[in-house]
Design a protein around this nucleic acid. Structure first.
Lengths: 129, 129
DNA sequence: CCGTATCCGATGAGATACTG
DNA sequence: CAGTATCTCATCGGATACGG
């Protein structure tokens, strides 16, 4: 199932795969996407709930981020034509699947953040000196 | 014990952790960082090798990306004062550790890209219609 | 309540030219 | 070969105002 046309890569990662990682990361690596996905990971939520749960996000960016998630099939948008209007957002199966590797990365970030911070301080001290 | 339904965060992820994911993703979610990390994952390489291995990166961006990796303690920079000069870059243990969750995300991207593309086509068709 | 439209500053990133 | 400096353009994201 896995074609290994390139003998170079250590364990089956072709260079197309590298581009794939890069693209998905550029896609979800913006300021708000993963935060929204993680909040939605706790269950469906409406617009204003999301906005409150994520502190500091502007209305514009929340809308934009949610539209992108919808477009990519990671979340669904359900409109209840009541007055006042109510809109629910919910992760799709695809969105929930994404949460797995994202949380793995989160775990890594949480564990290694002190090391990164220390490295930065060392580097900046060197440069300044 | 954990319930599967609505209530709280599934397994002990506080909101600080969410921010941590977000920050690390914003850090490595730029256009070139993961590509460079993945190439370095195959072993040490010098500047021009990296540049060739990654097609399309400008000299400026490669330098910038490598400096950030160095600053964050993810890669080392070794200068050989020969003529012409030679500079080797290599992943640190921290950098290699990062490769694990990044590759997991890459695996997800590779597996689900067709689904994302299909969702996008559906969405765009709707909007246009 | 849930958006869209617009303006604007900050950052990202390519092209090019120059140095040790 | 490896890197810096500068210019330029595109995109990101916040603030604000308005509409259904």
């Amino acid at each position: 199932m896995l074609t290994l046309s390139h003998p170079r890569a250590p364990d089956g990662h072709g260079s197309e795969d590298c581009r794939a990682v890069s693209e998905i990361l550029s896609r979800i690596g913006d300021k708000w996407t993963v935060l929204v996905v993680q909040v939605l990971g706790r269950g469906p939520a409406r617009f204003s709930e999301l906005r409150r749960a994520i502190g500091g996000i502007s209305q514009k960016m929340l809308t934009t981020t949610l539209r992108q998630l919808e477009r990519d099939g990671l979340a669904t948008r359900t409109v209840y034509p009541t007055i006042p209007p109510r809109v629910d957002y919910e992760l799709t199966d695809l969105g929930r699947a994404l949460l797995v590797p994202v949380n793995a990365l989160g775990e890594w970030a949480r564990e290694n953040r002190p090391r990164i911070d220390a490295a930065r301080r060392r580097f900046d001290a060197q440069v300044e000196g």
